[in-house]
Amino acid sequence: MIGPNGSGKSTLVNCLSGTLVHETGTVRFEGRDLAGLKPHERTRRGLARSFQLPRPFASLSVADNIRVPLLYAAASRRGRHLGEREITDRIAEVLEAMALTDRARHFPRDLTQVDMRKLELGRAMAAEPTLLIADEAMAGLSNSEVEDIVALLIRLNETGITVILIEHIMKAVMQFSQRLVVLVSGRKIADGPPAEVVRHPEVERAYLGQ
């Protein structure tokens, strides 16, 4: 999903994940209306999100940050608590996937921007979702860092997680997406295959042409 700054992308994510309550419309996920479900219940149904501004648990190490969704979201999704051994293995797996293994025992305050984004995605991955909404996971990163994150998201997608990427960086969007939605002033102005959508005159005018 793309859209100019302030077009309501993060607000939409917050409505989907239950952080904000929307006044009209319905949110359906896997055929079910999510109305009235708290954010943690939505995560437990498989709808995970990462935050645009990373929100790590500051007093927990990187590894323990991953532990939280394993103890709660993943345990609930599997219908049983994970054993300590299982948890350490899974933490190692997630850190490996996020290329954060050598940061395991660091605290979030010691992480670089890109590692902070990876931690954010790692926590979402540990929640074992079917849908992951990544809200501007690459904003402010360098080109090579953006490529890192895109590769990472593609790998997540290959494990069977649907990814909604909210992004400004068109190169990343075009490389990653199979479907592109354009939001302008809270209104969807285009929706379809990326190559077609970017040629849409209204999209060019509202967003790309600037």
């Binding site: 929100r55 939280v68 979201a73």
Partner: peptide
């Protein structure tokens, strides 16, 4: 907020 998002 992050706690909720992680299923807590």
């Amino acid at each position: 907020l992050a706690a909720e998002a992680n299923g807590v």
